[in-house]
């Protein structure tokens, strides 16, 4: 059963940018494409799967935010 044709158009409902064509918020997207999903064993990138990849990538995002590299999340979360 299809989950509905609209699922591709994820936009914030409201908030400051309401109505602006900004598409999917990147931080929320990274929460999902990096930290979730069905984990299977791949051939090539196992070594940087999960934690390090998440951290690495969010560091990139952070450093672009304010030229400062820091832990993406407050410490203590799983993963």
């Amino acid at each position: 059963m299809p989950v509905g044709a609209h699922v591709g158009e994820v936009v914030p409902w409201e908030g400051p940018e309401s109505g602006a064509p900004i598409g999917v918020p990147l931080v929320d997207l990274l929460d999902r494409v990096l930290a979730t999903g069905v984990v299977v064993s791949g051939d090539l990138v196992l070594a940087i799967a999960e934690v390090p990849l998440v951290r690495l990538s969010l560091n990139a995002l952070l450093s672009s935010v304010n030229e400062r590299v820091a832990a993406p999340w407050g410490d203590g979360g799983p993963l």
Binding site: R32, V33, L34, A35, T36, G37, V38, V39, V40, G42, D43, L44, V45, A49, E50, L53
Partner: peptide, 10 residues
């Protein structure tokens, strides 16, 4: 079912 970014096979 989405897979995480960069799941690759040879």
């Amino acid at each position: 079912l989405p897979l995480p970014l960069a799941t690759l096979y040879l």
